[in-house]
Design a binder for these strands. Structure first.
Lengths: 368, 368
DNA sequence: GCGGTTTGTGCGAACGTTCTCACAATAGAA
DNA sequence: TTCTATTGTGAGAACGTTCGCACAAACCGC
């Protein structure tokens, strides 16, 4: 038994018991500098006997590295962030890094507090899904002060930081093209589309058509609308503004009522494209409530591949984002920066996978 | 402009610029001790001008508190842990605490490493879903060394630490009773049931029947089997051992083949009880693959309420765990302990909610 | 034997805070 | 006046590490 107060054992105690200086004990335990075999042994034994556990705080204070990366997610509860976080945590753990987690709920104020907290705790790097893609002075400041940042899911324009995003525009465009190819001419889209800083949605549509928008620092849902518009233009099909359902907020109730309204119309669309996981779940709810059959009454392609889409009666064709891979990529980028890599900004744009299942068919009116 | 190197600003720099001692500056910024109004003002101004950000590491080193709680989850990616984590993070944030996250993948070795990492980083408290409910010397050691621990989802026997769990036995028992009441006599159960330290599953069944098992530090899936058995005994119905499908590992493929086998039998059960979210999803997949209709061909009650269960054609009756509440409760407990509360061990057992939907009916053979 | 490298050790100064002292100055009470 | 509180200040010692430096012993080729 002897000593079992594993509590406040310092390197000095270990050194004393081993009969060496604290410096020597530090060297063997920290694995730096030279030490003789005998002393190595003595110190190790002493440390084990005393139940010594290094204090990372003290180490970090002097080395200036905490081996901790901060993560600001939107909402950890969502499968989207949960999977990304999984990827981050895996890579971090493999390198002996810890993950300090906060969520912003997509609220700027909360993001501010979170970043502040993380920086005070001296994280070595920050992975963040930024709320505000235009301003974000706090992120510019953090980057300027030397904290490496990797953006995920979206990019704040002008921020000197790496990013990992999905080709949302391409994915949406491909899916909508799929529906168009099947013969659909009235394709509804349900998307969040909370805010676009440069005007209303009509302006957005006009500017996409005229080709004067750079999708890079758009929010994902806007990029997906972009893809929707692009596919229509490529097929030389006019946009029916009424088929674009802008929920305006990331809420189930708002999404539900908007979707119900769209699908209850006399001239309802023959196909539906949902722009994210929440919209997909809500749309599915609405579809079963209205007793619509997929794909005979309505074709459907969903952004985000949720588990139920594969085992529903006809499987739902869905765009699968490589979420854990995104997290892994982000973690690898941040670790590289922490490791001192100082090349150009890296902007990794990952590709989706279109899971083709049974929710798309020829539109009803053409089937006769 | 002036100074924008928000990087290495220490309290000494602030003090120098304000024309006071570091002690006074510390008092103003740290909010302890006495300071005159004038100095307060001067220091605040100086800090703001220099973009001073306190170094939590240095503070923690001396105060002995990091305002950080460590979390060891099984798999953050699962909706189960994601929701719990959400609850934890919310409560922690509200109190200015950070959350240091790791996952164990239910592997003891990984849990060991995780706990080690967290303790080295000097977390103030630990919330953990322990892998091993019997041994766990590392947790005993951590508790002994003064680190408060809150266990979640399950309890290691004899560990002096609070816990937050669900009444798994009660929930399972109630659900199975529901099926029995509807007239089912052949009720299948699909559960993970990876390990039970005291013997094989037959022994377990026998010992439950004879009433010689304390369910407190059983793994949830075993507690749920316990409830299944209990409900049968209460209804004086014999257990058919062949209806108890032990998957043995938390894997989709194993679960799928086991479930397919069960549902393909000539004398397949008339009702099914799935013991967790993964089993539920897999079972649903199997059911649709086999083209069985719910509830006419098979009644179903699932443990864990997943989003698709509410909007499927007939809704699936499910046991909803109050997950975020569990996380919140755990966080509150740990914060209380960190705050110095030293009463008796607290073991909070939360209640489930049975979401009654359309997946249960009278068994087919009695319907005539 | 002599410089030069390699290997090993201990002292003490960092790191950026908090916190204990000692010490003033002011104010009110006796 | 003189004694106690109250309010304020700064010097300097913690906290538990890492790291620079000085110094020694050993080994090496020549």
């Amino acid at each position: 038994m002897a000593d079992k107060r594993a509590d406040k054992m310092t390197i000095a105690d270990v050194a004393l018991r081993a009969g060496v200086s604290t410096a020597t004990a530090g060297r063997v335990l920290g694995g730096y500098g030279y030490t003789s075999k005998e002393n190595k042994e003595k110190v190790r034994l002493s440390a084990k006997a005393l139940g010594y556990r290094p204090n990372a705080l003290a180490r970090s204070l002097i080395t200036g590295k905490t081996k901790t990366i901060g993560v600001v997610a939107g909402d950890i509860q969502s499968p989207f962030y949960a999977s990304i976080l999984r990827g981050i945590a895996d890579v971090a753990r493999a390198q002996g890094f810890g993950v300090l987690l906060t969520n912003s709920d997509e609220l700027l104020e909360r993001e501010l507090e979170a970043v502040q907290l993380l920086l005070e705790k001296q994280i070595d790097g920050l992975i963040i899904a930024p709320c505000d893609t235009s301003g974000s002075r706090h992120l510019h400041a953090a980057a300027a002060s030397g904290c490496p940042i990797v953006q995920i899911d979206r990019r704040v324009s002008g921020l000197p930081a790496d990013s990992v995003t999905l080709d949302n525009r391409g994915a949406a465009s491909e899916s909508v093209a799929q529906l168009l190819k099947a013969g659909h001419r009235r394709i509804g889209i349900v998307a969040e589309l909370e805010r676009w800083e440069f005007g209303d949605i009509e302006t957005f549509i006009d500017r996409v058509i005229e080709g004067s928008i750079d999708p890079a620092s758009l929010f994902p849902s806007w990029q997906r609308l972009f893809g929707y518009l692009e596919a229509h233009r490529a097929a030389a099909i006019c946009i029916d503004r009424s088929l674009i359902v802008r929920v305006g907020t990331y809420s189930v109730t708002a999404a539900r009522s908007a979707t119900m309204e769209l699908l209850s119309r006399a001239n309802r669309p023959t196909a539906l494209f949902t722009a994210d996981g929440l919209m997909s779940a809500v749309a599915m709810d609405a579809i079963t409530s209205l007793n619509l059959q997929i794909p005979s009454d309505l074709s459907l392609i969903c952004f985000d591949d949720l588990d139920w889409m594969s085992f529903l009666k006809p499987g739902i064709t869905a765009i699968a984002q490589p979420l854990t891979e995104m997290g892994e990529a982000a973690a690898r980028l941040i670790l590289a920066r922490i490791g001192g890599e100082d090349g150009e900004e890296q902007h990794q744009v990952l590709k989706h996978r279109l899971a083709l299942r049974g929710s798309v068919s020829v539109p009803q009116d053409e089937m006769v």
